[in-house]
Write a protein that binds this DNA or RNA. Sequence first.
RNA 1: GGUGAGAUACUCAAGUGGCCAACGAGGGCAGACUGUAAAUCUGCUGAUUUUUAUCUUCGAAGGUUCGAAUCCUUCUCUCACCA
Length: 400
Amino acid sequence: MINEALREIRRGTAEIIDEARLETLLKNYFEKGETYTVKAGFDPTAPDLHLGHTVLLQKLSVFQKYGGRIQFLIGDFTAQIGDPTGKSETRKKLLPAQVQENAQSYKDQVFKILDPEKTTVVFNADWLNALGSAGILELTTTFNVARMLERDDFDKRHKAGIAISISEFLYPLLQGYDSVHLQSDIEIGGTDQKFNLLMGRHLQRVYETGKEQAVLMMPILEGLDGVQKMSKSLGNYIAVADAPNDMYGKILSISDALMWRYYELLSAKSLNEIDELKTGVENGSLHPKKVKEALAVEITARFHSHESAEAAREEFERVHAQSEMPSEMDEFSLTGPIWVAKALVDCGLSPSTSQSRREIKQGSVKIDQNKLSDEQLQLEAGEYVLQVGKRKFARLKVTQ
RNA sequence: GGUGAGAUACUCAAGUGGCCAACGAGGGCAGACUGUAAAUCUGCUGAUUUUUAUCUUCGAAGGUUCGAAUCCUUCUCUCACCA
């Protein structure tokens, strides 16, 4: 029993620090029914969760199965600094109302995976504001610049001559202090969070809390391109809030190699089941597309419903495999006669008439399934189905 | 505080008076092909029904010039070295 739990917890992890402590916590749960706390921090500036975030959530839900109480931390205070990880950009200060709104949006999305009964949502401004300048000052004495600069991205930026703001040094310290305040037993995060996660251990020791959190790091999920991490700013993401059709289509577009990665990190299928699928594909008894379809349906169903996932699959087959028209598309009504390039812009299929003309020249524009070659075409009154490329459609009604 | 270097399109990056709407790479979009929105190959990638044209754009504002991304002045920001 405990071994099975450990195996599920280890699945897909990049690194676990202090496994002994993890085992002790589980042992206490299985033998004495003692629960423990698992902390995970999220930034309130980006309430649009994507599948990359759900890797952590998936893992948190595993902990919930084995006695973990989740401390779902919303970093409303630290968001004022901005985690130095990755690109540095100046953050805008969020108004309390916005934070509340974003937090609510988090809850809506997160509880599709997590059990709300075993989750506590906390805001770090609650205790970090109370820390005061004396408290901050004390916090800064626990660490030094040389060690701070050991952090990989600080080091890179320092050497590359890219600005590092002093406030950014505070970020890891404050995140670590959260663990002190919350008395966390375990903290989980992405591998890019290693430095910050270890800071939690360091500060728990310095502040003599009597425990040092175990740290579990999940790998960063690759985005649709399979190379860069999934992120909204790179545009290679699948949002939790994506419509079923989009979500399904995006998952189906990933490469075969990446599919296995997604299986490991996102699927609720057991490791044994996944191994069977792999063997099937390798010996040719299973078509890779079928396996990918199964993944796409599973993930889509998780955030929507099984019915809408199945509907998305059928829709996809119809539109892409058999190149028929989608059953639903946006409808527009315009007064005519209207130049076709302009109509494409008005229907949101093209950003400018110049772009429309280029697309017509390339033969990517279709009207009622027929390729359009005359870029001067005026649309008279009537109903048309406009199409740009394979997947942008609009139904247009032209009135006199 | 001093000295020097730099800021070019979504990103990186070339361009040092007219051949510049601006090389190249990445990204994005499209076409062909395919089990797929994958891979590969090819084209396009500031705007505008003047399309062998016009207008806007090379950190900001002025200036020199027939003509400025390019020269000058001031400003803003970034970095490096020195203090």
